[in-house]
């Protein structure tokens, strides 16, 4: 038990470069595997949370753009969404990494983007923005006509109509699908260190460490189930948090009209 505490001290923040420098090399204990894989989860959470937060705003803008009458707003938004939803995230990561490498030689400003913490975050941000924009666009299309007419009758228009009627209704309708998107995004963060972005000084994410153990021990039956356990915990956390927001978005509705969260898991983007 004390040795396990010691291991946690050594490796608990290893993915950030704090603690023991060398990874365990042989005689791996269960405690070491759980601690290191858990430490890698810090990166998954970092990528997931930041990409989701930033992507939310871009997604709203893109959805409004796709819904706009003006060709000049609509076409770019449609193309952006098609570009990121039509191609594999894995290839996007590779392309972005090599793009940033080329740009780095042009201007040193792009140097941080060749590291995962910034470069992969940008890709994930744009990717989730495209997927969420499609969800929000669908929700915008299905806002009840009566809501908009009621706003018009009350003399609301422009910003105040958007702020008070369109946007909250859009969020309310899109929320269950958006919860799924958040879960997929979390799963997608595991691709980062397998797609060109180097894990500098072996500071990787959870899957990076899980595959490290699987490679070293030739035994996939321990690290991958640990990883799965961590991810299931994370997924449950997301569901709980988004469920709370869903409750708040629907709080004005009568009990039986409230939208139930229906969770459908998807695999790869």
């Amino acid at each position: 038990m004390t040795s396990c505490l010691h291991t946690i001290q050594d490796y608990g923040l290893r993915s950030l470069g704090i603690g023991e420098r060398l990874l365990p090399r042989e005689g791996f204990t269960l405690c070491e595997q759980v601690t290191l894989i858990g430490s890698g989860m810090i990166w998954n959470i970092y990528f997931g949370v930041l990409a989701l937060l930033a992507g939310f705003f871009l997604a709203t803008a893109l959805a409004l753009g796709k819904n706009a009458h003006s060709r000049w707003l609509r076409k770019p938004a449609e193309w952006f969404i098609f570009l990121f939803r039509g191609s594999p995230l894995f290839i996007q990561f590779f392309f972005a990494y090599f793009l940033f490498l080329s740009l780095k030689s042009v201007h040193p400003f792009f140097a941080p983007f060749t590291a995962a913490w910034a470069g992969a975050l940008v890709v994930l941000f744009l990717n989730t923005a495209a997927y969420s924009a499609e969800i929000f666009y669908g929700a915008l299309q299905s806002i009840p006509k009566g809501d908009i007419q009621a706003a018009d009758a009350l003399g609301m228009s422009g910003w105040s109509r958007f702020r008070r009627i369109t946007w909250p209704t859009m969020l309310r309708l899109a929320w269950p699908a958006y919860t799924n998107e958040a879960i997929f995004l979390f799963h997608a963060t595991t691709l980062v260190f397998f797609s060109g972005f180097p894990a500098w000084q072996q500071r990787g994410d959870a899957l990076y460490y899980a595959s490290y153990f699987a490679d070293k021990t030739f035994n996939p039956f321990i690290p991958y189930p640990i990883l799965a356990g961590f991810f299931i915990l994370c997924t449950l956390g997301i569901i709980a948090l988004f469920g709370l927001i869903n409750r708040r978005l629907n709080r004005h509705l009568p009990q039986e009209a409230r939208q139930k969260m229906r969770l459908r898991f998807n695999l790869i983007r």
């Binding site: 691709l191 699987a214 996939p220």
Partner: peptide
Amino acid sequence: VRGVPDIAFFLFFVIALDQ
């Protein structure tokens, strides 16, 4: 299969099936 993250499955199954 639906509940557990994506590529972990790919990495897992190939070794597990082989072994």
